[in-house]
């Protein structure tokens, strides 16, 4: 079965197409905060490179984060809409599960001087979490992910990013669950100064 995989939980947006577990084409675009601009053009490019039409895709896989919310929502709503038109299931996965392989602790940038992290050893150990690197009691496993946090974690970090293969491996067995983002933080309840944002 052909799978289209999408992840926007990190500054690198990832789009891949796989035939069962064989990745046919994949792009990792360092798009920063421009996921909304670049995601659909990247989907078009990756499908073209794989020689696949969107309507031939049998399912989608999308990273539910954790990650910066605005970008995260771009990926999830895109996958939901594509799946809606093609009429195929969309599986949500934890984006941290799609970074690296084997026994490891995955850390990614949560902004506000914090990291998202999750430990894995033959499967996830506990829920994904967010916290200040200095205060975390990470399990004694190799740490992979965003190397910029090595100093503050006091641990060696091997650079790794979300991959298509990782997204495919992370798909839970069974029917897809609702695509609920892994926000991990409550919304900042600071109302916009105006009822509508526009100052015009």
């Amino acid at each position: 079965m052909l799978t289209l995989a999408i992840d926007t939980a990190t500054p690198t947006l990832v789009v891949g197409v796989a035939d069962d577990d064989r990745v046919l084409a994949e792009a990792g675009v360092p798009s920063g905060t421009r996921h909304a601009e670049l995601l659909t053009p990247t989907v078009t490019a990756v499908l073209a490179e794989a020689g696949i039409a969107l309507r031939d895709v049998g399912r989608l896989v999308v990273g539910l984060g954790p990650g910066p919310y605005t970008g995260l929502r771009v990926g999830i709503v895109t996958a939901a809409a594509l799946g809606d038109v093609v009429g195929v299931p969309v599986h949500g996965v934890c984006s941290l599960d799609a970074v690296g392989t084997g026994a490891r602790v995955v850390v990614t940038d949560a902004r506000r001087k914090e990291v998202y992290w999750r430990a894995h050893d033959g499967g996830p150990l506990g829920e994904p979490a967010v916290g200040r690197p200095e205060e975390l009691q990470l399990p004694d496993l190799p740490v992979v992910g965003d190397v910029r946090f090595a100093d503050r974690l006091g641990r060696e970090v091997t650079g790794a990013e979300v991959t298509t293969a990782g997204l495919l491996r992370a798909v839970p067995i069974g029917e897809p669950a609702p695509l609920t983002p892994l926000y991990l933080r409550r919304p900042d309840a600071v109302p916009n100064i105006t009822r509508k944002a526009v100052s015009q």
């Binding site: 659909t40 929502r73 996958a79 939901a80 093609v86």
Partner: peptide
């Protein structure tokens, strides 16, 4: 951005 991303995906598909 939620609307823009959704609209782009519907248009593409």
């Amino acid at each position: 951005l939620v609307g823009v991303a959704a609209a782009k995906a519907y248009a593409l598909a």
